[in-house]
Nucleic acid binder design. Structure first.
Lengths: 101, 101
DNA sequence: TTGACATGCAACCCTGTGGTTGCGTATCAT
DNA sequence: ATGATACGCAACCACAGGGTTGCATGTCAA
């Protein structure tokens, strides 16, 4: 992902992070990334279904990944026919500090 | 591949916190609480409309407060005809640590 | 008491969005 | 080449949730 370049960095960017964290399935995906911070979309889908018993389609997970990427929590790179996903926890380290002294 | 054994979807309480943080109006309310951590619903409503130019009804803000209270981010106490609101930042200090090492 | 005031409650509306199905595309294996 | 694979895209559906209006309740001041 590239720097957002928006005028109010805190406002717009944080909105996407909070939006990304709002869904329980996406939070579960972040859990999976905490274990393995680099995996393909295919691997992630398999793990969510088998280990976490998530009943969901591949397309739904792909849309979740898009949101996580927009929020900067995941970066993706095309490797052949695979989409390689890399976890990035940086946004999580700052968003909450907004209300903490 | 084995089941992960983690609490499903990160637990009930965290769900409420993330749900509370999902809305930009509620985040703005938390900003206001950062300045004054104790104020009535009436005061809060007036400040949001005047200082932040939020176009919203009192009833809508009351429903937001209900959500913030369910998440433990705000505690309320009835004082006469006023509803006194107190900010509590404790939940914010833990939710994000879930994905940080 | 009477009226202004701060809040609670319930029904509605409408948009956002999570999920699905179906199909198309590009890559790899045989 | 040919099929299987991993993924992208678009349309559609269903429901949660933010916002509103209208009215009821309880408290304080005159």
């Amino acid at each position: 992902m590239q720097p957002c370049g928006c005028v109010s960095y805190g406002g717009m960017h944080n909105d996407l992070v909070f939006k990304a964290l709002a869904d329980p399935t996406r939070r579960l995906m972040l859990d999976e990334f905490s274990d393995r911070n680099e995996q393909t979309l295919y691997e992630l889908t398999a793990r969510l279904i088998m280990r976490h018993e998530v009943a969901i389609s591949r397309q739904a997970l792909a849309k979740h990944i898009d949101l996580l990427e927009e929020a900067g929590l995941v970066r993706s790179e095309k490797r052949g026919r695979y989409r390689m996903l890399v976890f990035n926890d940086e946004p999580l380290r700052t968003v909450v500090n907004r209300w903490l002294k």
